[in-house]
């Protein structure tokens, strides 16, 4: 089974307990206005142009004979600053598992493991299921998901996980559609199943100024999450940084300056990530 991965991050600090390596699966069915990994949206490999340091020397546009450059219209093997690359590498589940397990010593001894994130990892659920099954018993496995998938897919992948981190972004369905492009109905179904399951989990809410951080939304999320653990993620002001690199535009209506931290009293069991 093949899957497309846009990054493998060693020593990922915020994707679960202990020292972890996080695999970022490419492709996402949501279009969250505040997304900070725009290179994870499309499921196809795509050109990624780092902006900082480009001298417009033109070398990458000169034309080349490399097979792997053809789909992208730029030479990937010439930039003096290594600013021209492709986001999205195709892996077989077996090779990827082998690579990840090469660090299993420290991952295990530190109480860490592997986290599969995205994009939305459930979009490549067959690959992810195979990958997780290959890691079973060898290293702790965490899934980071938006929960946007059919109940069947969600439950079958969840069965291969030791821990699940799941986003709850917006409680109101219209708002959810407006800011993510999709209804939250499936997400809530999966969340409610997860709550009743025996799988250890953590809910997460990104605090987006004026969108998700309103008292109304957070109160509603609090009632959904109940006594389960919730982590609130302060807005990532670096979110717009990568948009230009993949030829996208960050929505201008997100006001980065008015980020505020919510009152934890709204929740039963929440913490704010530093």
């Amino acid at each position: 089974m093949l899957g497309t991965v846009f990054d493998i991050k060693e020593f990922a600090l915020h994707d679960g307990e202990g020292i972890r390596t996080t695999v970022f699966m490419k492709g996402c069915p949501l279009r969250c206005a505040w997304c900070h990994n725009p290179e994870g949206l499309s499921k196809e490999p795509e050109l990624y142009l780092k902006q900082n340091g480009c001298t417009a020397c033109g070398l990458c546009k000169r034309g080349c004979a490399h097979e792997d450059c053809k789909p992208f219209g730029r030479c990937l093997h010439i930039c003096p600053g290594d600013l021209v690359s492709v986001s999205g590498k195709v892996w077989s589940a077996g090779e990827l598992a082998e690579k990840l397990l090469s660090d299993s010593g420290i991952l295990n001894s530190s109480g860490g493991g592997i986290t599969v994130s995205g994009g939305e990892p459930l979009m490549q659920h067959a690959f992810v299921t195979e990958l997780l099954s290959l890691l079973r018993g060898k290293v702790h496995r965490t899934l980071e998901t938006s929960g946007f998938a059919s109940e069947e897919v969600f439950r079958s992948v969840a069965a291969e996980c030791d821990f699940i981190i799941m986003d709850i972004k917006l409680a109101d369905d219209d708002e959810h559609k407006k800011y993510t492009g999709q209804s939250n109905a499936l997400i809530f179904k999966n969340a409610s199943w997860l709550k009743s399951s025996k799988i250890s989990h953590l809910f997460r809410t990104p605090l987006i100024p004026g969108i998700t951080d309103t008292e109304e939304n957070l109160t509603a999320i609090s009632s959904i999450v109940g006594e389960d653990k919730l982590e609130l993620l302060p807005y990532n002001t670096l979110a717009p940084a990568k948009y230009e690199s993949v030829g996208r535009t960050f929505p201008s209506y997100i006001n980065q300056t008015c980020a505020k931290l919510p009152d934890l009293k709204l929740f039963k069991n929440a913490r704010i990530r530093k």
């Binding site: 020593f11 600090l13 202990g18 020292i19 420290i106 001894s109 530190s110």
Partner: peptide, 13 residues
Amino acid sequence: EESIGKVARLIEY
């Protein structure tokens, strides 16, 4: 604190 703990683990490794 959590990240500090992780860096400490790295040194131990």
